[in-house]
Design a protein around this nucleic acid. Structure first.
Length: 1041
RNA sequence: AGGCGCGUAGCUCAGUUGGUUAGAGCGCUACCUUGACACGGUAGAGGUCAGGAGUUCGAGUCUCCUCGUGCCUACCA
């Protein structure tokens, strides 16, 4: 604690230890209210500087066992990013799990890193250049990339600095950046292998083109927005004369009239009787004239794609600017005329529309059509407009040369055996995304495999589907596996090229001489086909998700020092096949925690690429890796979205973004973490609530003050010369060895001691179960209830009774024997208190690492048994003795105290005043209470106990199912209020009784319901009957008004 | 257009395979500045589980329908 010491206590004299940021504990030393800002930064720095969470690379021979380790990969945030609540939720959950597993003794490795985020980062730097009056193109590629690196050097650690602030227990020594050299080598290796396996091809297809970014983007980077648009009906006149019936034109319907400049046909459905006669006719395409020449002529053809119900039933075909039209063009060998340039301006030299932006062109064309009398109608039309997720630009489907990953095709060459690069694009095994076509590529997985839909069994997608279907990867919540299958079974080939400068440049070289392509790991000097040295590297870079999809194995060193290009298969030693020591130890990782928004972007891609590449990497023992061992992770936990308090999605435009750092500064990291954890129930979005965060800050404060109370009494004990042993279970745990020494105390110990340890037994079991099921909410609430409800409200209050530092005061006639007994009692109580409290801190530590670290160090006064509470043993049920009798006794006692308190309120007994009670009940219930008279005296202000042999029904009595109790106090009760209360109770009992009797009288129920249910109901009915009768008697006994 | 969710106390949410009289936090009411804590203590009030029908001995929980609401996927010019 960094506040100034105000030494009031002579006990507070130990020196600070340099290595431990905390000072020793002393109640007078602790501020009255918990102030997280004082301690958090200090501990965050300590954890990092002491390298507490680093995991050594195991020796290759040690054959690491991923099953015994707990390894996770942090979903790498964009290097340009700032921490948002989604990150914080994600990292809180990952950190709780990592700390929990670590404290359970597993080797827990959490690998952090950042993503180079191609488009986002390039945009960021371009914006900066623009503000300087410069541009990417002015700078040139190399200078621009240098500039991005400079940017990264300067600002790239912002988000990881924020992570440190959260206390994320990651292994910083393993931090990566997706553009690091060794990862670049791995990306190239992966690309080359896929190319050699015939799974990467290059071709001209329609892709989603972002005219602002000037690049292709994948289907996933496109969002759709419903907008009201127009459907234009346009008349296309025949060039080859009218039909016999006089028809001289056909009317087409389109939402994008400007694309008519690129039409190369009109299609009608062959079954559409209205149009059968016009099939084969030729059209003179309006407005298509260039340089004053005649309009282009295009055919009318029949194609199933044209739907008779839609529009006019006739559809214009623009193969270069629409995926469906492209497919029609393929079927009918139509020309593709590109009429828009990369920035979506009309590119048609000689046309009056040349150089116009697409939307300006639309207006002009519509006006011109109208002037020419060719505009038949304009109708309102709802359409889903495609927008670029990044730039917000309207996506322009564009025919362009791109690289694709074939996901539904068998690799060529079994087992990934490399083949020489062939220098030619491979054919496609599926269809590229965005490439149109309306026949489903794949059919859903069916029993026993796939239906014959052209999907190869050993394709990338098929392996990825099998990995989940066969249970090698499990989703939580399970529902997401459906979403996964839905997407995976309808997946198209993945467009992996981007027309950006920032990213992994595609390792392919184009030959100017023979136009062949050379794909190679090392920069080649000559074309592999013709030997010409006139070659130039492909300018495109890879989709960012291509490199991040490889991370689960590339972060562990794949492909190793010897890439496949330089190995001979015959050698076959594990390391030459790509098995690095880290891969052997940590792959597959145990778990991936992420949001559903990147389920397809990243999760599915990791599964595809992981299963594909890792199947070729042998197991540490040299055996062939199975699919189960090739998956990138065994479990996926998908968490919710964090919304604002009104359940609105946070967005910059709405201005409702909650900055986690700002919230942390107001409430403390621990409180925010605890809030997120306690609201993280699976499947439901989190409406982030400040009120709840306040509540959890209060929880932190409560713990802080409980610690103050403990320390205060430890101080007093020291002064009184009472030795209290500090618990030593905090010693670093060996997880397998069950602790020989239980926390706690002999059976002869006080009730509250035996009880609280029994509670610890139950609570640690419950927390274990909850965390095993990813029920962060249940784990958090269990600990909350225990710490506040059990420990502070009951245990601590009772312990106060046992603490006596002036031994002569509690006996009427001071004796040395009495003094000794009192000392023993104080020592025993404090010893148990410390042990219980220390256990509770360890229990809470994964959720509130800062607060618990601070108090824990303070507890050990600078001499803790471990460098951090995070390195101690997590409380296990077997560490605490469960004493059923104590649980039962305590329950009765609590019920009695609560009832007396309520009665006293009812009778308006002044708070400070004590009053005697009279009690009636079974001996087995009441007998143990005689040992708890002091507790009753303190917690319920009972001045004397009188046992009654008859039931108590007076105005000053209340009944429970196990006892009647009366408070003896001379004060007229509020008769109307009492009458109301009793009447209400009575009604409740009558209702319950009626329901129970109906059930018990029901023969089928008695016959069919399980015995324990019937028995339980009987017992309950009997209790209700008792309560009913007592309430009735009490009501009758009320004086009439 | 398909698919997946959600609707429980004033608010935010729990409620395991159907099983006794539905819980928590915050808020609210009353009282209490008792030497850990007013970011506190004690005792309370508050719900026909969106609506309807069905299956069952028994439904917040399973089925169907209706209403409201959110999201994801999609090649409809």
């Amino acid at each position: 604690m960094s506040h100034e010491k105000t030494p009031k206590s002579p006990a507070q004299t130990q020196p600070e230890l340099a290595a431990q940021p905390a000072t020793e504990a002393s109640a007078s030393n602790l501020p009255k209210a918990y102030d997280p800002s004082i301690i958090e930064r200090r501990w965050a720095e300590y954890w990092v500087s002491e390298k507490l969470f680093e995991v050594q690379s195991p020796a290759a021979t040690a054959a690491g066992n991923p099953a015994r380790n707990f390894t996770q990969l942090l979903p790498p945030p964009n290097v340009t990013g700032r921490l948002h609540m989604g990150h914080m939720l994600n990292q809180t959950e990952m950190d709780i799990l990592t700390r929990w597993h670590r404290m359970r003794g597993q080797t827990s490795l959490w690998v952090p890193g950042t993503d180079h985020a191609g488009i986002a980062t390039q945009m960021m730097v371009e914006r900066q250049l623009a503000s300087e009056g410069s541009s990417r193109k002015q700078l040139g590629r190399d200078a621009f990339i240098a500039r991005v690196w400079e940017w990264k050097r300067q600002y790239g650690s912002a988000i990881t600095d924020q992570m440190r602030r959260l206390g994320a227990s990651v292994d910083w020594s393993r931090e990566y950046f997706t553009m690091d050299d060794h990862l670049n080598v791995a990306v190239k290796e992966a690309f080359v292998r896929l190319y050699e396996q015939g799974l990467i091809y290059r071709g001209a297809y329609i892709v989603n083109w972002d005219p602002i970014q000037q690049t292709a983007v994948s289907d996933l980077e496109v969002t759709h927005e419903d907008r009201l648009g127009k459907l234009y009906h346009i008349r296309y006149p025949f060039a080859d004369g009218p039909l016999p019936d006089g028809t001289a034109s056909i009317v087409v319907a389109t939402t994008r009239p400007e694309t008519m400049l690129g039409d190369t046909a009109v299609a009608v459905n062959p079954t559409d009787a209205r149009y059968t006669a016009v099939i084969g006719k030729v059209i003179s395409l309006p407005l298509s004239a260039v340089n004053g020449a005649a309009n282009r002529e295009i055919p009318i053809l029949a194609d199933d794609w044209a739907q008779p119900e839609f529009g006019t039933g006739a559809v214009k075909v623009t193969p270069a600017h629409d995926p469906n039209d492209f497919a029609i063009g393929q079927r009918h060998s139509l020309a593709s005329i590109t009429i828009l340039d990369t920035s979506a301006q009309i590119d048609l030299p000689g046309s009056p529309y040349h150089g116009l932006d697409r939307f300006a062109a639309r207006e002009r064309i519509v006006a011109d059509l109208e002037a020419a009398g060719l505009l038949v109608a304009i109708k309102d039309h709802n359409l889903a407009i495609a927008l670029s997720q990044r730039s917000g630009a309207v996506i322009e489907p564009r025919l362009s040369m791109q690289w694709f990953l074939a996901v539904n095709k068998s690799p060529e060459g079994a087992g990934g055996t490399p083949k020489g690069a062939e220098g030619k694009p491979k054919g496609t095994g599926g269809k590229p995304e965005g490439a149109g076509g309306f026949s489903p590529l794949n059919t859903p997985a069916q029993e026993g495999g796939f239906s014959p839909g052209g999907v190869a069994r050993d394709s990338i997608a098929a392996k990825a589907i099998a990995a989940v279907r066969d249970g090698h990867i499990q989703f939580t919540p399970e529902m997401y596996s459906k979403t996964y299958f839905e997407w995976m079974t309808n997946i198209h080939d993945w467009c992996i090229s981007r027309q950006l400068w920032w990213g992994h440049r595609i390792p392919a070289w184009h030959c100017t001489a023979c136009h062949a392509i050379t794909v190679a790991r090392e920069t080649p000097t000559a074309c592999s086909t013709c030997g010409s040295s006139d070659i130039a590297q492909e300018t495109d870079v890879l989709d960012t998700w291509f490199s991040s999809g490889l991370l689960p194995f590339t972060v562990f060193g794949w492909p190793g020092t010897a890439s496949l290009s330089s190995r001979s298969v015959a050698e076959g030693s594990a390391s030459s096949l790509g098995l690095t020591p880290d891969l052997a130890a940590f792959y597959p990782t145990a778990l991936l925690v992420t949001g559903f928004d990147i389920l397809f972007f990243w999760v599915a891609r990791m599964i595809m690429l992981g299963t594909h590449f890792m199947l070729d990497v042998p197991m540490p023992g040299g055996s062939q890796r199975t699919l189960a061992e090739a998956v990138p992770f065994k479990e996926v936990y998908i968490h919710a979205l964090v919304r604002d308090a009104d359940r609105q999605k946070m967005s910059k435009t709405k201005g409702n973004v909650i900055d986690p750092i700002e919230i942390i500064e107001r409430f403390g990291t621990d409180a925010v973490r605890f809030t997120l954890a306690s609201m993280a129930s699976p499947g439901t979005d989190i409406a982030f609530s400040e009120a709840r965060t306040e509540g959890n800050r209060a929880f932190a404060n409560k713990i802080w003050n409980a610690a103050r109370f403990l320390f205060m009494n430890l101080d007093r004990a020291r002064q009184a010369g009472i030795e209290v042993a500090l618990p030593n279970l905090g010693a670093p745990s060996s997880p397998t060895a069950s602790s020989s020494a239980k926390v706690g105390s002999p059976d002869t110990d006080a009730l509250e001691s035996r009880w609280i340890l029994s509670r610890l037994n139950a609570v640690s079991a419950e927390v274990h179960r909850a965390l095993s099921d990813y029920r962060f909410d249940e784990a958090a609430s269990t600990i909350y209830q225990f710490f506040w409800g059990d420990l502070c409200d009951w245990y601590l209050e009772i312990v106060k009774l046992r603490l006596n530092f002036e031994p002569t005061n509690d006996l009427p006639f001071p004796t040395s024997e009495g003094a000794e007994r009192s000392v023993d009692q104080t020592r025993a109580a404090l010893t148990n208190f410390v042990a219980v409290f220390e256990s509770a801190l360890r229990l809470l530590s994964p959720f509130m690492p800062f607060l618990t670290e601070e108090i824990w160090h303070a507890l050990y006064a600078g001499l803790p048994p471990a460098k951090s509470i995070a390195l101690t043993r997590y409380p296990q049920p077997q560490d605490y003795k469960c004493d059923e009798a104590a649980l039962g006794e305590m329950q009765t006692l609590q019920e009695l105290i609560t009832t007396i308190r309520a009665l006293r309120k009812e009778l308006a007994v002044p708070e400070r005043e004590s009053a005697p009670i009279r009690i009636h009940g079974d001996a087995q219930i009441l007998d143990p209470l005689q040992f708890s008279q002091d507790i009753l005296a303190r917690l319920a202000r009972v001045s004397g106990i009188e046992v009654s042999f008859v039931a108590l029904t007076g105005n000053n009595a209340r009944s429970t199912s196990s006892f009647d109790v009366a408070v003896l106090y001379e004060r007229q009760i509020d008769v109307p209020a009492e009458r109301e209360r009793l009447a209400k109770d009575l009604a409740k009992y009558e209702k319950g009784l009626a329901a129970a009797e109906r059930q018990l009288g029901n023969e089928t129920f008695m016959a069919k319901a399980p015995a324990h249910i019937v028995e339980g109901l009987r017992k309950q009915a009997a209790e209700t009957r008792t309560l009913h009768d007592k309430a009735k008697a009490a009501l009758d006994a009320l004086p009439a008004q």
